[in-house]
Amino acid sequence: MSNQDIIVEVNEVSMMFRLYKEQVKDLKGYLIKKLKREISYEEFYALNDISFQIQRGQSFGIVGVNGSGKSTLLKIIAGVMKPTKGNVCIHGKVAPMIELGAGFDFDLTARENVFLNGAILGYDKEMLKERFDEIIEFAELGQFVDVPIKNFSSGMVTRLGFSIATIVQPDILIVDEILAVGDYRFQEKCEDRINAMLEQGTTLLLVSHNMDQVKRMCKNGVLLSHGNNLVCGTIGEVCERYESL
């Protein structure tokens, strides 16, 4: 397989957090502690030497129990965090859906938020204007376009977030647990849209605790446990190992 077909490369990524025993948040406390050399912390590796590659057009699942480092890994791939060691190479445009509507301002209306959130995701304004109706229609918010979203139900906010994030076809779609919210019908609608993107060559990175969903949507995957890479291979192998944990 040629090198060009690899869209995400994760090379020996480690992420270390410092766990301070005492929270020092002011200057005075910091100076006193520093002078007494009492600033102590434990090093905590949320990710430990993780390496894998994802091929273009592949759907890739990341599984593991709570606290195994899944979200940290996604944040590093999305460029939100920089790893302590190692690096990540991305060859394409990423649409992160780590949390839907992360950039929403709850005082603004749905209409204003479409443009604000679209800009945060790096989308073109003209395109947003053109496809505005489509966004609202998919989110099923027809009559609430000019209502501040603080008055929305959480389902409505999620629908709007999903609708904006998926309006363009990204090279890589990162999905973190977001399909767990929303009603059954909307979940199906989201899945259909993601599947349509996959057919057109989008690469999917999915984090989920719903094993059926992972098995259904992904072909390959990686199992993380305490920041270590346990298995990396086909989704069958990964799930089998996960269930035997």
């Binding site: 301002d105 005082d107 603004l108 204003e112 604000l116 800009a119 945060i120 790096g122 073109d124 304004k125």
Partner: peptide, 21 residues
């Protein structure tokens, strides 16, 4: 260049929010 529209949107948001209502 890619994020220039974001700067505009952020400014617009601040200005709008300040005197809203």
């Amino acid at each position: 260049k890619k994020y220039m529209p974001l700067l505009k949107e952020l400014i617009r948001r601040d200005v709008k929010i300040k005197y809203r209502r």
